[in-house]
Each structure stands twice: as C-alpha cells, then as structure tokens.
Computed example of a mutant assay.
Amino acid sequence: MSVDHFWCRLPGPVVDTCSPEELGELVPRDRDVRYDRLAAAGLALGVRRTAALMELALTENGLHPDPAARLPVYGGGRREPGTETLVMRPDQVAAASTFLRDSALGELVRQQHSVLARTVARLGHPTPWSESVAARVVDDLRDLRDFFAGAAAAGDAVVVRGSDPSAKETT
C-alpha cells in the first residue's frame, strides 16, 4: 500500500473559520489534477513513502533539541481528536521554515544512515536503503524546505494530511 503525505498552505485566518472536516477537504488526498494545480501554484506539496524517513532524519538521536525539528513533517496540532489533519499556525510555520533553512539536510540524512536503513527494513520497503533512496529523501526535504519558506513568507498556515508514522509503507 502506498502511503502519501500532503501539505497545503492556507491563509492563517482560514484555519480558524473552517471545521476539521472542511480543512481536511482542502488538503489533497491523492496526486491528481487538483493536487497538480495546487502544487504548480506552490500551495501544496506531497511526498510518496518518505515522510517517516524525513521525520527521522530531522529528529532522530537527539541531534536536534530544537522543538521546531518535529514541526515540518508531523507537527502542528489536531483541531479535533480523531481527525487525520494537522494544523500548523503561521508562527509554527515560520519556526519550521527557519529550522529547515538552517539545517544541512543532506548531512542530516547521511548522519542517520543506520537509523534510516533499519526503518526502511522495518517498514517493509521492497527496495532496501540505498544511495538512491537517500537522495530521494534529501530531495523531498529540500522541497519541504522551499514549501515552508514560501508559506512563512506569506504568513500562511499549513494543514497536513499525514501518513501515520507507524503505518507500514511500501515503495
């Protein structure tokens, strides 16, 4: 089963006026025409199968005591328990953007090589950890950095439709 992780930028006040269900509907569920339009405008980002690996690269082994390390992938809070969307307010978006901007993303992935390799095996990826998988994680982190930079510059909130970090992913 392919697990995807999506981020969507929204003007900050929108997150206060929408119900959790409405917010969930604003974030793509699949890579489709709607997603393509939002992504082309810089308003959405999606990754396939790398969210858990991205999170580990940013946070594993206590290398980053900064709480902002947890924000980019699985950060924010649930507007209502049991909903699948997470909301990051503009101040959290700015903190995540600063953290990503100030991090050597390729180096973080390299430093976490062993942890990421074990995670790929644990999650049952048919493709073992390799330089090409590492490069995809770094590319996805760079895309995430650029996405958050745009959102922070605009003062936007970010809504995340996340994959469960404990869910089994496949490539």
Rank of each mutant, 00 (worst) to 15 (best):
Arg9His: 05
Leu38Ala: 12
Pro11Met: 13
Asp30Ala: 04
Leu38Trp: 05
Val14Asp: 14
Pro11Gln: 13
Arg31His: 07
Trp7Asn: 10
Pro13Glu: 08
Leu10Tyr: 13
Ser19Arg: 11
Pro13Ser: 12
Pro20His: 09
His5Gly: 09
Arg31Met: 09
Cys8Ala: 13
Leu10Asn: 08
Arg9Asp: 07
Asp16Arg: 15
Leu23Ile: 08
Asp32Trp: 02
Cys8Tyr: 04
Cys8Val: 12
Pro20Arg: 06
Leu23Arg: 05
Asp32Met: 02
Arg29Glu: 02
Val33Ile: 02
Asp30Tyr: 10
Arg37Ile: 02
Arg34Pro: 00
Val14Ala: 14
Arg34Glu: 11
Leu23Gly: 12
Arg31Ser: 00
Val15His: 10
Cys8Lys: 07
Trp7Gln: 10
Cys8Ser: 12
Arg9Cys: 11
Val33Tyr: 03
Leu23Thr: 09
Tyr35Glu: 04
Arg29Gly: 05
Arg9Ile: 01
Asp16Ile: 05
Pro11Asp: 15
Val33Asn: 00
Glu25Asn: 11
Trp7Ile: 08
Phe6Arg: 07
Asp32Tyr: 01
Arg34Thr: 07
Leu10Ser: 12
Val27His: 02
Pro11Ala: 15
Gly24Pro: 02
Leu26Thr: 07
Leu38Thr: 04
Asp36Ala: 04
Glu25Met: 04
Asp32His: 02
Tyr35His: 10
Leu10Ile: 09
Cys18Gly: 00
Cys8Ile: 02
Thr17Trp: 14
Arg9Val: 00
Asp16Cys: 13
Val27Tyr: 01
Glu21Lys: 14
Pro11Phe: 09
Leu26Cys: 06
Cys18Trp: 14
Phe6Asp: 10
Cys8Thr: 12
Val14Thr: 15
Pro11Cys: 13
Gly12His: 12
Pro11Ile: 14
Arg9Leu: 03
Glu22Gln: 15
Pro13Tyr: 10
Ser19Thr: 15
Tyr35Thr: 04
Tyr35Pro: 01
Gly12Cys: 10
Arg31Val: 12
Trp7Glu: 10
Arg31Gln: 05
Phe6Ser: 10
Pro11Thr: 14
Asp36Lys: 03
Leu38Arg: 03
Phe6Ile: 06
Leu23Ser: 07
Asp36Gln: 05
Arg9Met: 07
Thr17Phe: 14
Val15Leu: 12
Thr17Pro: 00
Trp7Val: 11
Arg37Lys: 06
Leu10Pro: 08
Leu10Phe: 09
Pro28Arg: 04
Asp36Phe: 01
Arg37Ser: 05
His5Thr: 09
Glu25Arg: 07
Glu22Asn: 01
Asp16Val: 08
Asp16Gln: 15
Glu25Ile: 00
Arg29Lys: 08
Val33Arg: 13
Pro13Phe: 06
Arg31Glu: 05
Pro28Met: 08
Arg34Phe: 06
Phe6Tyr: 14
Cys8His: 09
Val14Leu: 13
Arg29Ala: 05
Val33Glu: 13
Cys18Asp: 11
Val27Met: 01
Pro28Asn: 08
Cys18Ile: 00
Phe6Lys: 06
Gly24Val: 01
Asp30Leu: 07
Arg31Lys: 07
Thr17Val: 15
Asp36Cys: 00
Arg31Gly: 00
Pro11Leu: 14
Arg29Ile: 00
Glu22Thr: 13
Pro11Asn: 14
Asp32Val: 01
Arg37Asn: 03
Glu25Cys: 02
Glu21Ser: 14
Cys8Gly: 01
Arg34Asn: 05
Tyr35Val: 02
Pro20Tyr: 08
Thr17Lys: 13
His5Asn: 06
